[in-house]
């Protein structure tokens, strides 16, 4: 299940997006975002204009992967929470449903305690959403009713991309 393609549809995206916005507000954070463990950005909320979220996503996943490697060396399953403190900004990273990474960037207007409290609540909701999403993707794949646009990709489409 962990190795399945991640497929996200409109309604799940909206739910996730809504949760991230709510978390950003309630935790008094600057930015909240969600990354696939492979480094792909899923959704983000808050003041992301000046930030390269693609790079941030990839580095966060690298960070989690490296920490996970350390955890396994020590006989831990994973370190589910990481926290980095800076002069102005701090970053709180946690793993959700064992496959996605929730990141919160905040400054002195918030606190670690508040962030942790809000993250806990959001994590539970997001876990539910992702479990539904994976189940749905599997069901559709099994039923063969998946009307994926990719089934109709022609060699010409692919060639055009690389012209």
């Amino acid at each position: 299940m962990i190795n399945a393609d991640l497929v996200m549809y409109e309604d799940e995206f909206e739910k996730i997006d809504g949760e991230l916005k709510k978390l950003c507000q309630q935790a008094n954070a600057k930015i909240t975002f969600l990354v696939d463990k492979n480094g792909q950005l899923i959704a983000s909320a808050g003041d992301t204009h000046d930030i390269d979220t693609t790079a941030l996503a990839s580095l966060t996943a690298g960070n989690i992967a490296a920490t996970g490697g350390i955890a396994r060396l020590l006989g831990e399953k994973e370190f589910s929470i990481l926290f980095h403190e800076g002069e102005k900004d701090n970053i709180h990273i946690s793993i959700i449903a064992q496959r996605v990474i929730l990141v919160i960037i905040y400054d002195q207007r918030s606190s670690l305690g508040l962030v942790r409290l809000r993250v806990k609540k959001t994590s539970e909701i997001l876990t539910g959403i992702f479990e539904d999403m994976i189940r749905k993707a599997e069901e559709e794949k099994d039923s063969g009713l998946n009307e994926s646009p990719f089934a109709e990709i022609s060699d010409e489409d692919i060639d055009n991309l690389f012209r």
């Binding site: 393609d5 497929v7 792909q40």
Partner: peptide, 15 residues
């Protein structure tokens, strides 16, 4: 494991 996002209409692949 590509990531297909129907909402933002993106496919992400890792090489």
């Amino acid at each position: 494991m590509s990531f297909i996002n129907y909402s933002s209409r993106e496919i992400n692949c890792k090489i």
